[in-house]
Structures are given as structure tokens and as C-alpha cells.
């Protein structure tokens, strides 16, 4: 991991580090599943949720994760911040750092802001998503969900479908999954990907049959409706017909295929309701559960890293 700097992108983590975070996440999930959903690990530590971009889901997931580790959580979102007063992102973060948080959870609309802030802060950062760059905890929770279901990830056919170009989820997924040996396919309208994405280690296809046939895992990305206005696709109707996933297409995949989605789902657009609600295949809510576990693990691994200690 980037030393002392937390988890800002799967592009920086080794295979072993990703595996360690996921292994710990499974133990964290056991905590979430019992009646006392709290361990005292981070008693007295302050976790700051610093969200420059609105996201109730991710913020809530991190907040629950931190609280289950007994940390104190402070939420700071841009609407109530001094950003409107013209303060820079760096100054905002440094001001909060002066109050001694143990870790920052940061979401921001600018790609690369984690690298920028890492240069200015001593406090470790966990990225909750930056621009169109990375969303590392989402990537790891996706991998965890696959490992949980398939007991492995190497050599699985994983299809990531949708707006690849603007997706930080797609990038974190492919960085992590290729490190763990998966075969990743990108399926997208040609306006929402470029040929250069193949250099990330994926095969690119524009054909639904090609994409979904024999898939072990299908990850449908959320389509931002505003992309239609900029001419990237003509209508939701056509998008859904050509690039969406429905029950019929799901039959192309392996019988034990699982379907995932980072949420929130546009029902009837990228994913038909029948697939989203198909208990045999849909693992969307499992992802949400695993999300808390991954974030508990990420916070735990980011905070507990100083000084030496020996047993006995």
C-alpha cells in the first residue's frame, strides 16, 4: 500500500494486499451478522467522511463501517462546507486535519485529487471515489462478492458492461481483477469506451452475444442519464435494447452466472427488473453487505499501521 497514505487506488495495491484486505473483510462480515455488531478496535479514533460530491450510499456504508469498529465518525459534505466560500480543497482538508482525525474518507469529482491531497496531508486517505479515476473499495467489494460466490476469481469470465469511459468502478474493477487473474471483458457502446481501454488488460466487445456468452460474472454499470443529452447514445430505449441485460440475454451466460451492479440501478435501462430481482443470479444486495465489510477492513488496515508490536 502507498506507505502511510491509505488506500487511494487499486492500481497501487499488490495482489497480496488486495487479498489481505478481502480476507479481513470476511471476518468483518461475521461481526456485522451477529447481534452485537460492534468491536472496540478503533475506540477513540476519529474517522472523517469528507465528501465533496454527494453520495448518500457510499457515505452511509463508510459511516456504518467506522461505527462498527467503534470509531467516532464526522461527516463533512460540500453543501455545508466552506467550498462555497472559495476555499481550496487542500485548505479544507488541512483545516480538518488540524483536528487530528485518524483517517480521511474522501470523495471528490476530480480525478487524481487523492494523489494531490496525499502530498499535503499526513493523515492516511481512503478514497471513496475520485472523478472518473478509481473507486477502490467498490472494486474490492466486487472482488469479494465474486470470491464469496465462486471461491476463486482467476480465469473467470467477468463482463463489465456500460459506460466504461466515465466509470471509476470499471477502472478499479479491472485493476484489481486482472491482478487476481480474471479474464475481463468490456461491453459498451463505442461512444462510451476507446480502443485504448484494452491496454488495461480487457477484451473489448460491442456485441451482446459475444459479451454475455459463457460469462461467470456480469457487472452492469449505471448509465448516467445526462450522457444521452451529450449525444453519447440516442435514447434509453435503444440503449436498453442493444446494451442492456435482460432475462433472455442472461441465458447466454453460464447457468451459475452472478449479476452485480454498483447501484443505484436504473431499472429497465441497463438492467431489467426481472434480472435485478432474480434471487438465483442477482447479487446486488450482497454487494451492499460486502461493501460495509470491505470498508471496515479498509479502515482497519489503514489506521492500525504504526509502531512495532510483538506477541508474547
Amino acid at each position: 500500500m502507498v506507505p502511510g497514505k491509505g488506500i487511494i487506488g487499486l492500481k497501487y495495491l499488490s495482489r497480496k494486499e488486495i487479498e489481505q484486505i478481502i480476507e479481513t473483510a470476511f471476518s468483518m462480515r461475521d461481526v456485522s451478522r451477529r447481534s452485537v455488531k460492534k468491536v472496540p478496535t478503533l475506540r477513540g479514533k476519529t474517522v472523517v467522511n469528507l465528501f465533496f460530491e454527494a453520495s448518500t450510499r457510499t457515505k452511509t456504508s463508510f459511516e456504518i463501517a467506522a461505527k462498527r469498529l467503534s470509531a467516532d465518525v464526522v461527516n463533512f459534505s460540500y453543501t455545508s462546507s466552506s467550498i462555497s466560500k472559495g476555499e481550496t480543497t487542500i485548505d479544507t482538508a488541512k483545516n480538518i486535519e488540524a483536528m487530528h482525525p485518524a483517517v480521511f474518507i474522501i470523495r471528490h469529482s476530480s480525478s487524481g485529487v487523492m494523489e494531490l491531497l496525499s502530498r499535503h496531508l499526513k493523515t492516511p486517505i481512503i478514497s471513496a471515489g475520485d472523478g472518473t479515476n478509481e473507486h477502490p473499495t467498490q472494486g474490492m467489494l466486487d472482488i469479494m462478492t465474486i470470491m464469496d460466490e465462486k471461491k476463486r476469481i482467476d480465469d473467470l469470465k467477468i463482463v463489465i458492461a456500460g459506460d466504461i469511459y466515465h466509470s471509476r468502478v470499471a477502472r478499479s474493477d479491472i485493476y484489481g481483477m486482472t491482478k487476481l487473474g480474471a479474464r475481463v471483458y468490456f461491453f459498451s457502446p463505442p461512444t462510451l469506451i476507446t480502443d485504448d481501454f484494452a491496454t488495461l488488460g480487457a477484451s473489448i466487445t460491442y456485441d451482446a452475444k459475444d459479451a454475455f456468452t459463457d460469462a461467470d460474472v456480469i457487472i452492469m454499470l449505471r448509465i448516467q442519464l445526462e450522457r444521452q443529452a451529450t449525444g453519447l447514445f440516442p435514447s434509453t430505449r435503444e440503449y436498453s435494447r442493444i446494451f442492456g441485460l435482460n432475462a433472455q440475454r442472461l441465458k447466454l451466460a453460464r447457468p451459475d452466472v452472478i449479476v452485480m451492479h454498483p447501484g443505484p440501478v436504473n431499472r429497465g435501462l441497463e438492467l431489467s427488473s426481472s434480472v435485478a430481482d432474480d434471487a438465483d443470479h442477482s447479487r446486488i444486495l450482497k454487494q451492499v453487505e460486502n461493501g460495509v465489510s470491505i470498508r471496515m477492513s479498509a479502515i482497519y488496515h489503514t489506521i492500525g499501521e504504526e509502531h512495532g508490536y510483538t506477541d508474547n
Binding site: R168, T194, T199
Partner: peptide
């Protein structure tokens, strides 16, 4: 510039 590096950095090209 739109290319391999912009893809890697997640910056619009």
C-alpha cells in the same frame, strides 16, 4: 491527450 495515459489516469481526453 486522449490515449493510453488518459485511460489509465481516468482523465477525460
Amino acid at each position: 491527450n486522449e490515449g493510453i495515459v488518459s485511460v489509465r489516469l481516468g482523465l477525460n481526453g
